[in-house]
Design a protein around this nucleic acid. Structure first.
Lengths: 121, 121
DNA sequence: TCTTGACGTAGAGTATACTCTACATTGTAT
DNA sequence: ATACAATGTAGAGTATACTCTACGTCAAGA
């Protein structure tokens, strides 16, 4: 089963322009049919899902591009890719801890606001 | 105690250009001395720290600006400001949960990589 | 056949948040 | 007096990640 760019846009939720942009940036490179139209596969769906995960967790396009390049190179880059992910996991952990600290501070601030509002009423 | 823009840049870690940009965007408005030079106070340090917190937790400048405007209006906007913070706390909670889910998925992927690398060695 | 709609490429435009440049002014040290 | 470092304003430039426009091709339905 494969998909035109329009269908692929539907199933991934990414705009057609965005898909072409991602391709231009080297994040994915779908096959072309005889008419030069892009053909996306089910593997591409999985891959886009992973790209989204990396993106939403703060990895910039350039770094995702690097991961994509390693992926294209094949099994010889498994270790290197894993190292990238391990490093990214660490930054994700740090990020979460940082946000949790901010949440605690925000809680304090809100309590202060509630007291202040209470006092004035 | 008050600070020139250079001193304030030092203590806040924000660049001079950034401070002027924030002022232009309505995030803060320091007093001016007789020579039109900006004079920042200790309150401004606290305020910048809070702006940084909002920023790093994903609040866009425009929304911080709105909060700043309410703050300037005084005590009558306490409730409204608190509502903003409560809403932002919710989005922060959601954000953290989302990142934790991504972390779990990333863990799985890393385990898969480790197994694959193990198998091939 | 003709029109329409999906697709193609190349490049321009947008949004956000800075970051820097150019040039004028001013307080201070020599 | 004068050089210089910090500051002022206005506006241009940068980085990132899209998002859209212009224009051309092509297969399929009316």
């Amino acid at each position: 089963m494969d998909y035109s760019i329009g269908e692929f846009s539907e199933v991934t939720g990414l705009g057609i322009h965005t898909l072409r942009y991602y391709e231009h940036e080297g994040l994915l490179s779908p096959m072309r049919n005889s008419n030069n139209r892009r053909r996306y596969t089910d593997q591409d769906i999985t891959w886009i899902a992973f790209i989204k995960r990396l993106k939403v967790t703060g990895m910039p396009i350039k770094e995702i591009k690097r991961y994509a390049a390693l992926r294209t190179e094949g099994d010889s880059t498994l270790t290197e890719r894993m190292e990238m992910l391990v490093q990214h996991r660490q930054s994700l952990k740090d990020q979460i801890r940082c946000l949790q600290e901010h949440e605690a501070k925000l809680d304090e601030k809100i309590v202060f606001y509630q007291q202040e509002i209470e006092r004035r009423s």
